[in-house]
Design a protein around this nucleic acid. Structure first.
Length: 470
RNA sequence: GUAGAUAUAGCUCAGCUGGUUAGAGCGUCGGAUUGUGAUUCCGAAGGUCGUGGGUUCGAGCCCCAUUAUUUACCCCA
């Protein structure tokens, strides 16, 4: 006998967990639809040519690849793995061999499949196109806290418009979902790739731009010392690093930080790239104004953080990231604007903006903050007891009526001891037990016990359904 | 890919410097006037101590290997 197991980084979800997860999905779906986003689903498997090269070298390594069908060892004795793979290929290593034996891979995120969909359906879509998508994705990552190999993302994106109203609406949706889940203590961080570029320019343009962004993104995690150390190792001068922290350390509220960075960029001689100075700062100011006009009230939860960078390189405009405070958990949501997402699929110039919720992390946050209220083990509301064959049969019409009245109900399938049937109802959290035994049958009544209070009522059999539908 | 930790009953874990038949709680099953749960009492079942070697008179405990799990880093939801 083998010991059963599931693959690393995957989980089973029992009835109570599924119920909780459905609650999260429902809050997110309702919000997305309120904002006019329409659902989309794409295949679990994508062609690897669609996926590779979109997430950087690290991302490519994290793709789950699916072996082609067929018997690869069939021709082994002749030194041939498949008709496509030669001995030279084998010598060249996995980078050459893998694309020949694995043409498909598991979806790594929802944005790239969406871009592929937009490119493939460009002729039939009406732009601006808003879609949401809630599906699992797979990454061959090392699992750890808040990180799984199979997890759900809930994305909402709009493509075909440059309007900053979309950015503002992302903030509104983020806040609505988190408030709806009861996760009130959150921080939405916002920044702009243009601001990061201006910071790089303010430092005199020395060093590697990406190294800089990767390092400062960790500021709140490893602190100034950690960032300094990393930048020194990457060849940035100490004086440059001082200038960097002057810019990143701007204080004040959202508008004040924008003002101070504007002054800082001007002092550093950064060239203007916008009719109002700098594109990044100007757009961030516009997003703020649009939020005010939209009636957004939680500005204390919205933080302009010039150190926010985010990894995925396709972002070009505003970028977002959401953290739940007082929980040791990475970001639960993130996103941003990209100017050319579909370019790789032969459709250049389509800009868009979108964001994503990580359901599994939201779940973990809710759990560690003890914010789940319902722990229903079963949807069943009524358990009908089963005494003997006769009373069991007599219960079936009532069972059918209860179900027809939309009251989830079940008859205990065996004529076990009543004690056992009650224990079953209690263990599953079924609130009502309907006792329909020989005594009740003879009198034409049903005894109803409310388990929580222990209270019992006797009702004529014909009045049960109407009494319970109240 | 790098570094650390853990592996004992269905679950969560004890098990002293190596020493006879490996324990607890929870759960499961049975019973306490055979038509009443969650509380209480009694009882039972259930483990070749992850796997394979080694040291020793003797290994759950020490050593090596291996596999799995987990935490941190990289990166990310």
């Amino acid at each position: 006998m083998q010991k059963p197991s599931i693959p690393q980084g995957t989980r089973d979800f029992g009835p109570a967990q599924v119920a909780r997860r459905q609650h999260i999905f429902n809050v997110i779906r309702r919000t997305f639809e309120q904002f006019g986003y329409a659902p989309l689903e794409t295949p679990t498997l994508e062609n690897l040519s669609v996926l590779t090269g979109k997430y950087g070298d690290e991302g490519d390594q994290l793709l789950f690849k699916v072996l082609n069908s067929g018997n690869f060892l069939q021709n082994e004795r002749r030194g041939v793995i498949t008709p496509n793979v030669t001995a030279e290929d084998l010598d060249a290593g996995p980078k050459v061999v893998l694309p020949k034996i694995a043409e498909k891979g598991l979806r790594y995120d929802l944005t790239v499949p969406f871009a592929r969909y937009v490119a493939m359906n460009r002729g039939t879509l009406t732009f601006p196109f808003r879609r949401y998508q809630m599906q699992p994705v797979w990454r061959a990552d090392r699992p750890q806290r808040g990180r799984y190999r199979e997890f759900y993302q809930c994305d909402a994106d709009v493509v075909g418009t440059d309007s900053l109203l979309c950015e503002a609406e992302i903030v509104l949706m983020m806040a609505q979902v988190l408030n709806g889940l009861g996760l009130h203590d959150f921080t939405i961080k916002i920044n702009h790739r243009g601001v990061l570029r201006n910071i790089f320019q303010a430092l005199g343009g020395a060093g590697n731009e990406n190294d800089l962004f990767v390092a400062i993104d960790k500021l709140d995690k490893i602190g100034r010392e950690g960032v300094s150390k990393e930048l020194l190792e990457k060849g940035f001068a100490a004086s440059v690093i001082d200038t960097l922290f002057e810019l990143l350390g701007v204080e004040g509220d959202y508008a004040e930080k924008l003002q101070r960075l504007l002054a800082g960029f001007a002092t550093a001689g950064v060239e203007s790239d916008h009719d109002r100075g700098y594109r990044g700062l100007a757009e961030l100011a516009d997003v703020h104004d649009l939020l005010v006009a939209s009636g957004f009230r939680q500005f204390e939860r919205l933080e302009f953080d010039p150190a926010l960078a985010r990894g995925l390189s396709y972002y070009t405009g505003c970028i977002f990231e959401v953290k739940i405070n007082n929980v040791a958990m990475g970001s639960v949501s993130g996103g941003g604007r990209y100017d050319n997402l579909t370019g790789a699929f032969g459709l250049p110039g389509v800009s868009g903006v979108g964001f994503s919720f990580g359901v599994d992390r939201l779940y973990d946050c809710l759990e560690s903050l003890d914010l789940f209220t319902e722990t229903a083990e079963t949807p069943t509301r009524c358990l009908l007891t089963h005494f003997d064959k006769e009373s069991g049969l007599a219960a079936l019409p009532l069972l059918a009526q209860l179900r027809a009245a939309n009251i989830p109900s079940e008859l205990y399938p065996d004529a076990s001891k009543l004690q056992k049937q009650f224990k079953y109802a209690d263990a599953k959290g079924i609130p009502l037990v309907l006792i329909l035994g020989p005594e009740e049958l003879a009198a034409g009544v049903v005894k109803i016990k409310i388990l929580k209070t222990g209270e019992e009522k006797v009702l004529p059999i014909g009045e049960v359904v109407s009494a319970l539908t109240v």
